[in-house]
Simulated scan of single mutants.
Amino acid sequence: MTRHIAIIDGHPDPDRTRFIHALADAYAAGAEEAGHDVARIDLSTLDFPLLRSRAQWTNGAPPPAIAKAQAAISAADHLVILYPLWLGDVPALLKAFFEQIARPGFAIGEGRMPKPLLKGKSARVIVTMGMPAFFYRFYYGAHSVKSLKRNILKLAGIAPVHDTLIGNVESEDCDRADWLDRMGALGSEGA
Rank of each mutant, 00 (worst) to 15 (best):
A67T: 12
V161Q: 05
Y136A: 07
F135M: 12
L85R: 07
T45E: 15
P12G: 07
D13W: 02
Q100N: 15
W57G: 02
F135D: 02
G30T: 07
R103E: 04
D178F: 09
P63M: 04
P84A: 11
V161A: 04
T58H: 05
T58V: 14
M131Y: 10
A22V: 00
N168M: 13
A142D: 14
E170W: 00
A156L: 05
H143A: 15
M131R: 08
N151A: 09
S122N: 10
V169H: 03
M131N: 15
L186A: 11
V161D: 05
A61I: 01
G157W: 03
W179N: 09
G88F: 05
D77W: 01
L43G: 08
L165K: 00
K119W: 00
R18I: 02
D9T: 14
F98G: 04
T2L: 10
I7C: 06
I81C: 02
A39W: 04
L93S: 08
H4T: 13
C174Q: 02
P132L: 03
L117K: 08
C174R: 00
K119Y: 00
W179I: 10
R18M: 04
K95Y: 05
T58F: 11
I101Y: 03
S171M: 07
H162P: 00
D25M: 01
I108Y: 09
L43C: 12
G187Y: 04
G111Y: 09
P114T: 10
F135I: 11
R182H: 11
R16P: 12
A72P: 04
I101W: 05
L79D: 02
I66S: 04
G10Q: 05
F19N: 02
K146V: 13
G35E: 11
M131I: 14
L153H: 01
L79K: 03
R52M: 10
T17A: 13
D77M: 04
Y27P: 05
C174D: 03
T2V: 15
N168D: 12
G88Y: 01
A102Q: 13
D25N: 13
F48C: 01
A75H: 10
P116D: 04
S188I: 01
F134D: 14
S122A: 11
G167K: 03
E110D: 14
A28I: 05
E33P: 00
V161P: 06
T45M: 08
Y83S: 11
E172A: 13
K154F: 07
P116S: 08
L118E: 02
Q100I: 08
A133H: 00
R54L: 14
L117M: 15
G111D: 14
A142K: 11
A75E: 15
D89A: 14
L117N: 03
R54D: 09
F138S: 13
I166F: 01
I5M: 06
S188W: 00
F138I: 13
P132H: 08
A142R: 07
F134Q: 12
H143M: 13
N59E: 15
L50M: 14
